[in-house]
Design a protein around this nucleic acid. Structure first.
Lengths: 178, 178
DNA sequence: TAGAAGCAACTAACCAGTTGGTTGACAGGC
DNA sequence: GCCTGTCAACCAACTGGTTAGTTGCTTCTA
């Protein structure tokens, strides 16, 4: 039988949910473990029991969120404008993930990219390269450059409050025009 | 007149230089006023005498850096690929400015954009619109959308370590292709 | 010599991380 | 059904180091 009051997995989930809001709003350095514990409705010591440290909590949180996004927004190499559009929508729907990743990038650089993300990236480059060889997508850029440009375009909302999905899709359509 | 040791402006300049490195590396929340003072070779109290607070120091620093960049990289509405390329180079040459702006955006959102930046943006939109009316640049996007896309493309190095000036210029060329 | 520039030392608050102990769930003996 | 030993889950209170910001005094220069 499953306990209701004392449930390790439920407590971890509550901490991760609270941490998502806190880290997305204040960054890693600006986040406060006391606020995370209070929002999760449990004691600060639980963070150290389950995640080791503030950084440990952030790392596990980022990994989970990135895995979720990779799964939720699969690449469609023969329809890159749509892929960029779906990425854009997912950032609008869950702005915390983009902010989490941005803070992580700023504070850790490109060297600390999570393994799952690097693997997914490699897989996507190969998918784009395959589509290019099959003539399904422009070969004006090599596969990794093209993927970088498409993904970068999808985070247009990071640069301007006037970004829309439509604008992102039109931009990508021009990138891959023959 | 020829004061060397006790020079208010020189002390402010040293503090601003030290603050640039510190804020760019650690962000606003992660920056430490003690480190800034130590690096500037003066006492922490000087920060409060000349800038009021840690945030006051950051705000003045950001304003100066943005003004400098606006002046150093003027827009050329009839050669947007080159404009994006020069922006890209300036970010590579002085990576701190981009990091400063990124941290500021993450922590303050779009509402806290410095006045000088907003004015320069408006001026650039008008310059692009004029070039479009004169037929010197594609009217496929409206002026502000186009400017947003060009500027966003120029910060490609924020998304990928593989960004080059050449790639940025080629991408912008495609955005404005007829 | 007045006033501006500069600083060592201080303060009060803050914050990540720890500790020592409590509570609740449950297995198994009776 | 009830007692009880065990252990995982949990937390209030604490610790020690850190941090932004202040003050009162000294030093330099016009």
């Amino acid at each position: 039988m499953r306990s209701v009051v004392r449930d390790k997995e439920a407590t971890k989930a509550k901490l991760l949910e609270a941490a998502l809001d806190e880290f997305a709003e204040h960054g890693i350095a600006g986040a406060r473990v006391d606020r995370i514990a209070a929002k999760a409705g449990c004691n600060k010591a639980m963070i150290y029991a389950y995640f080791g440290s503030k950084e440990g909590l952030f790392d596990e949180l980022l990994k989970i969120q990135i895995d979720r996004m990779i799964e939720a927004v699969p690449i469609t190499p023969d329809d890159l404008p749509n892929y960029a559009g779906r990425l854009f929508d997912s950032y609008v729907e869950r702005p915390q993930v983009l902010r989490l990743a941005a803070y992580h990038r700023l504070e850790n650089g490109f060297d600390a990219i999570p393994k799952a993300e690097a693997e997914a990236y490699q897989h996507k480059v190969e998918a784009v390269a395959k589509a290019q060889m099959e003539g399904k997508v422009s070969a004006a850029f090599n596969a990794s450059d093209l993927l970088d440009l498409v993904v970068h375009t999808s985070i247009l909302a990071f640069s301007t409050p006037n970004a829309t999905r439509e604008l992102v899709e039109r931009a990508v359509r021009r990138l891959i025009a023959e």
